[in-house]
Design a protein around this nucleic acid. Sequence first.
DNA 1: TTCCAGGGTAACG
DNA 2: CGTTACCATGGA
Length: 299
Amino acid sequence: MSTILQIETPAHFNFTQNLHYLSRSPDECMYHILDGGIKRALQLEGQTIIIELREAASDKPALEVRFLCGNDTAQLQAAVSRYVREWLDLDTDLQPFYDCAVREPLLQHAVASFPGLRIMGIPDLFEALCWGIIGQQINLPFAYTLKRRLVEQFGEGIAYEGRQYLLFPDPAIIAGLSVGQLTSLQLTGRKSEYLIGVASLIAEGELSKEQLLASGSLQAAERMLLRIRGIGPWTANYVLMRCLRFPNAFPIDDVGLHNAIKHLKGMERKPTKQEITELAAAWSSWEAYATFYLWRLLY
DNA sequence: TTCCAGGGTAACG
DNA sequence: CGTTACCATGGA
């Protein structure tokens, strides 16, 4: 009946490792993980579909995608394939990072513990920016709660086999909200203003992923993001890492990164920014992956 | 109870 | 300019 799309996976990719990362919060609302597979809704090529992603039982290491709901034209299949490759970062060769990490005291343990882990992406720019802003200065469980409220309140949902599959809210919807409609979800007034502002920029076509990628360099894209109210160095680099996929994006202000370093080095205090800069010199051009692996040590 | 959470802004000197 | 108060809630 429905087509099964096969997607070959590269060396240094382990589906179970990544599934474990994706399972980290019971409050995650953008996909359902059950029985070794991921199911989620996607809006691609102007259509809304539900897919299931799991490891393929084939000779070559691969994933298989089932189309549970919606058409599966060749064009849509190609779009889904591109989406999955980007989401799971299947097109990056991790060998150079691993070559670097095995010689690096701070990274050895992490890369040995989570082989095949990749930076799980947030392909949608608006979702990535919202997630970054929501997560500023609050603990992660609460951030997941706030995201779920936002998505349940303002995102579209599709029911399938008794389960609700949610799409992230359209920027135009959020752009039209009042601050009060967001503070009622327990977002702060300030963050509510940030979200509405970012939504407006995207809805008006003044900010896009294409535009950021076309800027030519990490630094240029970072400068564009830093001009936006509510986006500082941490949020900019977080988005450059998880959405734009710059391997050298580096959220150096991240408290989780600070705690991981403190723990690994047996320090009594958190490292200073200068100390981190000196340590991270050895991760040059792979700062994003180093950060992601160190985060993984924390939970 | 206090302190910290995947920070950023605006108002100070 | 560098520094600081403030945001607002939940969990340890």
